[in-house]
Design a protein around this nucleic acid. Structure first.
Length: 929
RNA sequence: GGGGAAGUGCUGGAAUUGGCAGACAGGCGUGACUUAGGAUCACGUGCCGCAAGGCGUGAGGGUUCGACUCCCUCCUUCCCCACCA
């Protein structure tokens, strides 16, 4: 070995970065002779520091983009900044820096950091969402949505963060305690006039993932988030004076129209507009108090599932349209104004929440669905039956289980008749009343009721009525009822079953019940099949300064008017002040609000809310197409060539926010003639999260943050890139390990050594060269495959293996042979996407023409990659007993023969003939004895 | 409460998708070269056992000639949603 230049990343990395930049090596322009590939990775927020997590997301994305480029695609890999948002304003408040100054200083710093990783970003395509040239078009998009009735303004109870002083989209409220995504403060509800985008119009289409190659997990998260429920809308008639016909028609949504006959009361959300109108004078005080209390409560208290049910009777009744029953209307905060119609029919027998409520307030419980297995359960308490009862049950082959409290009887449908007779014979009918009186319960069944006559049903219902509104001592009865596990089972722990107690619908089988009832409802115009979504319209108003102003003015005459296109962008004023009022500086600005109405030209007032930053990031992939274009949001010619995004990489945390919004944007854009095709991003892949060395989330307060800059200074970007690709499965992530990076350090250094040592040609055997060449092409095959499937860790390990093999070959004198030169050539091409600087440097040292990054990806020579000799595993009864080396093209007979004649096998056969010999060609022989 | 994902050496992780479990690394151990080493190189490293051998992919069962991989039951951890009618 001779002297060699030491590997010095600090020298070669900036050198090549400058050269590539100067040469425009990574510029991507329309080239119709090549297949385009739009590789996109989520843009960062300019917080001021690149986090190792950014690198973890971007490095493999960059490597893959480079790989695809070498494979002949015209690859675009752009970068930009999602630059509006709260942290800039908080910096302004806390440190007295203007958000603009803070943001752009951070962007400058992060650009430098991004460059240091040696990514192939085309910086000419950079887009910054806080540039007026950018938000001009965010505002333009708002205008388009407004014109197409996809943006609207409404007064609504919204989630409000008292710390950040702004409203939040539903997606930005997190966790059990319903806290603000940004600052962690629990949110409160506020009634405000706010702007919304009609995302719900696209709910069904957003559930269709058939055009997408997205992780199942993301599809599932979105599906659950949108949460489509099929059911029916049913109109109940409110029995109160002074209501218009419209008002008296109280519509509820239910997923179980087959349980309509079991509706024993109704519940309105406290905010429901009807509440004030229907409350009777006697109940008014209670109701008003309850409503006030519900409004005051934060969501934490209100939406806790653990919480005991609360509610108040309005004094008003409604008529159930299916059976004419008059049922009481209550209000309770477990009914949400924001879902469905804000009113429910309560079926305590088949809904756990309604059941709890009925229990607490002594409301009637009427089962209307039989058990799905067709079995009815009965309970006979000890002390109510005579001695012969058990025997009689046995004789009839009616199964039962003895418990401490009595008999759990499982009653097959065909035995009901006999059971009824038996019960009568044993005078259980008398017991019945006893049962109710002592707090025990019977099973409700169509047949049994007939037998017991209507009387017992009436008795039960009446008894329950006695409990109204809130007679505590009788709770015992309901609690004991609750204790009967079988009863709970029979109530709501089952799905569809035969309808009972439902008038003409009794005995309707569960399979058709919902549809039958829906049709019937529709025929009688008392309801219809309906679909509901949990997805809400997207609330985009933010009472903040650092965002794109909503391009609306309010005219006293003409109401909300769009700012005309030619007046866009509505610029954010720079001369603003932050006062500790919690109000947006835009509201406090002396003149900014003053505008004129585009209709009449009279004085009008500007909207002072700005748009949610997710609005800006919903279309940034379009701004990259032509960041300087000023005739529209993007140049249609560029759109035509580059869109849609072929591969999108980023964190899964955006599954129910950005990734829903951007799909909505694209689909709305398509319907408005702006975008084309069903989806904006075809393939999506998520990386995992890097944790600190302590396996905790990285945070400054924990002091476990890994700073990428320090790593680059210490090891060089190539090594950091390699380690990020190697250390974990990309989609899983995991804790950082600072000693683990030594492996990548050594690997790069060993590459350097191997390629820079000057060694005189040796005298290798043909076998050495063949083994080398085989390994080269096998590695190439694997690396190619793994790039395509995002298995970055095995790319590195394959390259490590090949390097070890090359060291071996060098030892055996391979240097100087054409196979050696080919190995070096292919190695550097495969290395180029992973470690672009060192690959470029070594490529130059070998005297190859600049640049390694513009080279073609080599083709696998399958003949060279094929094994000539294989190791045939010989198993006896599935256990490995021997390994024999045979030619790869060995015949079946020969392989079996060789396996059987192996010494090791002979030992296990003990002279017995094999029962069966299984051959897996090229793999193994299994001998069964 | 509902939905989902994952359990492989001391650690990160491989295993061509039903065919040699533990590739490639980290760590650790032994040695070499060194005045020195956070450098480099060689060898070793799943568990039990002196060995022959046996046992091993969260636990138990099943299918199969053969199971980390498929099926059933259970356990553990993590994530998401959560009074959504």
């Amino acid at each position: 070995m001779s002297d060699q230049t030491p590997y010095n990343p600090a020298e070669i990395e900036p050198k090549w970065q400058a050269r590539w930049e100067a040469d425009g090596l990574y510029h991507s322009d329309i080239d119709r002779s090549k297949t385009k590939y739009y590789a996109l990775t989520m843009l960062p927020y300019p917080s001021g520091e690149m986090h190792i997590g950014h690198w973890y997301a971007m490095t493999p994305s960059d490597a893959r983009a480079r790989f695809l480029r070498m494979r002949g695609f015209n690859v675009m890999f752009p970068m930009g900044f999602d630059a509006f948002g709260l942290p800039a304003e908080n910096a302004a408040i806390n440190r007295n820096i203007h958000p603009k100054e803070w943001t752009y200083a951070n962007i400058r710093r992060m650009r430098q950091q991004l460059r240091s990783m040696g990514a192939m970003f085309d910086w000419r395509r950079e887009a910054v969402s806080s540039d007026p040239e950018y938000y001009h078009w965010s505002q333009w998009f708002f205008a388009q949505l407004f014109k197409n009735d996809l943006a609207y303004r409404k007064m609504s109870p919204v989630d409000w963060c008292p710390h950040d002083n702004t409203t939040l989209a539903r997606e930005q409220v997190w966790g059990e305690d319903r806290h603000c995504e940004r600052c962690g403060t629990p949110v409160i509800k506020k009634d405000l006039e706010q702007w919304f985008f009609r995302t719900t119009s696209y709910a069904d289409e957003l559930l269709d993932f058939s055009h997408l190659d997205w992780p199942e997990r993301v599809e599932l998260l979105q599906t659950n988030w949108i949460h489509r429920s099929e059911g029916a809308e049913v109109h109940f008639i409110v029995d109160a004076e002074g209501l218009s016909a419209d008002e008296a028609r109280l519509t509820v949504f239910t997923t179980r129209p087959d349980t309509l006959w079991g509706a024993t009361f109704m519940v309105l959300a406290p905010e429901h507009p009807l509440v004030a109108k229907i409350t009777t004078d006697e109940q008014r005080e209670l109701v008003e108090e309850y409503v006030q209390q519900a409004l005051r409560q934060s969501d934490i208290q209100r939406e806790s599932a653990e919480k005991e049910k609360t509610g108040v009777f309005t004094g008003c009744y409604a008529t159930n349209p299916v059976n004419g029953e008059s049922i009481p209307i209550w209000i309770a905060d477990y009914v949400l104004m924001t879902y469905g119609t804000g009113a429910i029919m309560a079926v305590p027998a088949h809904d756990e929440r309604d059941f709890e409520f009925a229990l607490k307030f002594g409301l009637p419980i009427l089962p209307v669905i039989d058990r799905p297995d067709g079995l009815t359960k009965s309970f006979v308490p000890i002390g109510t039956m005579d001695a012969g009862f058990e025997e009689a049950l046995s004789e009839l082959s009616i199964p039962f289980v003895k418990t401490e409290k009595g008999l759990n009887v499982t009653l097959p449908v065909d035995k009901v008749e006999q059971y009824v007779n038996l019960a009568q014979k044993h005078q259980l009918a008398d017991v019945w009343t006893e049962v109710v009186g002592t707090g025990w319960i019977f099973i409700f069944n169509d047949e049994v009721l007939k037998w017991e006559s209507q009387e017992s049903e009436v008795r039960i219902l009446e008894l329950c009525k006695d409990l109204e509104p809130n007679v505590r001592h009788n709770r015992t009865l309901m609690e004991m009822l609750w204790e009967c596990e079988f009863y709970r089972d029979a109530l709501y722990h089952h799905e569809y079953g035969t309808m009972i107690n439902s008038g003409e619908f009794s005995r309707t089988p569960g399979e058709t019940a919902v549809q039958d009832v829906n049709e019937w409802l529709e025929g009688r115009e008392i309801g219809k099949a309906a679909i509901n979504y949990r997805l809400r319209d997207w609330l985009i108003s933010r009472q903040r300064y650092w965002g794109a102003p909503i391009p609306i003015v309010y005219c006293p005459q003409h109401g909300a008017q769009l700012v005309p296109d030619e007046q866009l962008p509505v610029l954010l004023p720079d001369d603003v002040e932050w006062l500790p009022t919690g109000e947006s500086p835009l509201k406090l600005h002396p003149t900014w609000k003053q505008a004129t109405c585009p209709v009449c030209g009279e004085a009008a007032e500007r909207e002072t809310d700005t748009m949610d930053t997710f609005m800006c990031s919903s279309w940034y992939h379009l701004r990259y197409l032509s960041p300087d274009y000023d005739q529209g949001p993007f140049d249609p010619e560029e759109y035509d060539y580059w869109m849609p995004v072929d591969t999108y990489t980023g964190g899964i945390e955006h599954a129910t926010m950005h990734l829903i919004y951007t799909r909505f944007f694209h689909k709305a854009g398509r319907d408005m003639g702006i975008t084309q095709g069903p989806e904006p991003m075809i393939q999506l892949r998520n990386q995992g999260i890097i944790l600190g060395e302590d396996s905790e989330k990285m945070s400054k307060s924990r002091g476990n943050v890994i700073a990428p800059d320090e790593l680059v200074d210490r090891y060089g970007a190539d090594t950091v890139r390699a380690y990020l690709m190697f250390f974990a499965r990309w989609d899983l992530g995991g804790p950082w390990n600072s000693s683990g990076i030594e492996g990548s350090v050594r690997w790069i250094r060993r590459i350097w050594t191997l390629f820079t040592d000057t060694i005189s040609p040796g005298n290798p055997t043909p076998e050495t060269l063949q083994v080398l060449r085989r390994k080269v092409h096998q590695t190439l095959r694997q690396v190619t495959h793994d790039f395509e499937t995002f298995e970055f860790n095995t790319i590195i390990s394959a390259l490590m293996e090949l390097l070890n093999e090359m060291y071996k070959a060098r030892e055996q004198g391979a240097v100087g042979a054409p196979e050696w030169d080919e190995a070096q050539d292919i190695y550097l091409r495969m290395l180029a996407p992973v470690a672009p600087h060192v690959a470029e440097e070594l490529w130059g040292i070998l005297g190859k023409p600049y640049s390694v990054h513009t080279q073609d990806w080599p083709d696998v020579d399958e003949a060279a990659a094929a094994e000539q000799q294989i190791t045939l595993v010989v198993q006896v009864n599935g256990k490995v007993r021997d390994r024999i080396t045979v030619p790869a093209d060995i015949s079946e007979e020969k392989a079996k023969e060789l396996a059987l004649s192996s010494d090791a096998v002979g030992k296990y056969l003990e002279g017995k003939p094999p029962r069966k010999v299984i051959l897996v060609p090229g793999k193994l022989v299994n001998i069964v004895v």
